[in-house]
């Protein structure tokens, strides 16, 4: 299915910065929406809309970091490019720890910002693709028997069949049979593939 067009959401309390960003992004053909405060953005937020967030880290009222926290609480996956002033590196680090795509210091070269925005939009697409893949993986995991799920968990933790047999108090042969059925049901071509799928499935907590 084809994605709806992605939008760059700009949130900055400074009129001039906001307006100039709108003009810049428009000039490179990116759809832009601007918001003067975090609350304004949050009020209009729609998780279904694709795009990325260009977010001023310091703002009166709700700050950029607080908005990030609120979006995380909503399981929103919109990638965030923070724009920061000088001396805001500690805040930027915190933002990165909470999943921001990148940050850029004001003032910035237009290309740097555009590159970061493009990366973020790419990330958003991946996220949305991943979301779809995750849905498939979760569905497959849902088709496993309880015993197979136990084996999956232990296998993806890197335990050997012999150890798993001991843990579950079954024969090593039984473990091998369960393991083969898990690989088949999950559609995994290798152990590495299986592990990646489990990580993918765990990425956003149910």
């Amino acid at each position: 299915m084809k994605d709806k067009p992605s939008t760059v959401f700009v949130v900055d309390d400074d009129d001039a910065v906001r307006t100039s960003l709108r003009l810049l992004l428009k000039s490179v053909g990116l759809p832009v929406e601007t918001y003067a405060s975090a609350q304004e953005f949050l009020d209009a937020f729609d998780a279904e809309r694709a795009g990325c967030l260009v977010l001023d880290i310091r703002m009166p009222g709700m700050s950029g970091l607080e908005l990030q926290q609120k979006l995380n609480e909503l399981n929103a996956i919109v990638p965030i490019v923070f724009i920061t002033g000088h001396g805001d590196v500690p805040m930027a680090v915190e933002a990165m720890q909470h999943g921001a795509v990148d940050f850029i210091q004001k003032p910035f070269r237009d290309q740097d910002l555009i590159d970061r925005i493009n990366q973020a939009l790419e990330k958003d697409r991946e996220n949305r693709d991943g979301l779809r893949e995750r849905d498939v993986i979760r569905r497959r995991i849902g088709q496993l028997t309880p015993r197979e799920r136990e084996v999956l968990e232990l296998v993806t933790k890197g335990k050997a069949n012999k150890v798993i047999a001991g843990d579950l108090d079954v024969s090593q042969r039984t473990v091998e049979i369960h393991r083969a059925r898990v690989m088949e049901k999950m559609g995994a071509s290798s152990l590495a593939h299986l592990v990646r799928m489990v990580i993918e499935a765990d990425r956003v907590a149910p």
Binding site: D14, A16, V17, T19, S20, L21, L23, L24, K26, S27, V28, R58, I83, G85, H86, G87, K106, P107, F108, R109, D110
Partner: peptide, 28 residues
């Protein structure tokens, strides 16, 4: 200082962004 740097940085950011947008518009 932080606040003041910010206060000067904001218009500089806007200026740089406007100017770069203008260049891009002209190059379009």
């Amino acid at each position: 200082a932080t606040g003041l740097a910010h206060e000067i940085n904001q218009p500089l950011t806007a200026i740089a962004t406007y100017a770069q947008a203008a260049v891009r518009m002209m190059d379009a």
